[in-house]
């Protein structure tokens, strides 16, 4: 992994997020974010060549379900929240590739 100095442009981010911030806040946030970036860069120094990637934070395997039909057709209820339906179908603006 290359250790390039990440400059994060707070003003640009604020603009994208449609948040208005004053100059003082911007400076403070810039300091904060720089220290976060520094911390992450520090973590990147650890040699992980022999470490397996973590697939899940929980140390527990997947629970399985028996192959049984447990749901009854309830099309009416399930389609109640849909903006548009017709003849049992959900309908959306036409999409053809």
């Amino acid at each position: 992994m290359t250790n390039k100095t990440n400059h994060i442009d707070i003003a640009h981010l604020a603009n994208l997020a449609k948040v208005e911030i004053d100059e003082a806040t911007e400076l403070k946030l810039q300091d904060d974010i720089n220290s976060v970036v520094k911390m992450i860069s520090k973590m990147m120094e650890v040699d992980t060549t022999d470490t397996l990637p973590l697939k899940s934070p929980l140390d527990s395997p997947q629970r399985l379900r028996p192959d049984e039909v447990s749901e009854n057709p309830n099309q009416g209820l399930l389609q109640r929240g849909a903006p548009e339906t017709k003849g049992g179908f959900f309908t959306v603006p036409r999409v053809i590739e």
Partner: peptide, 10 residues
């Protein structure tokens, strides 16, 4: 795509 006019049916 050809069931409902102007619409895609799902």
């Amino acid at each position: 795509h050809d069931l409902v006019e102007d619409r895609t049916a799902l």
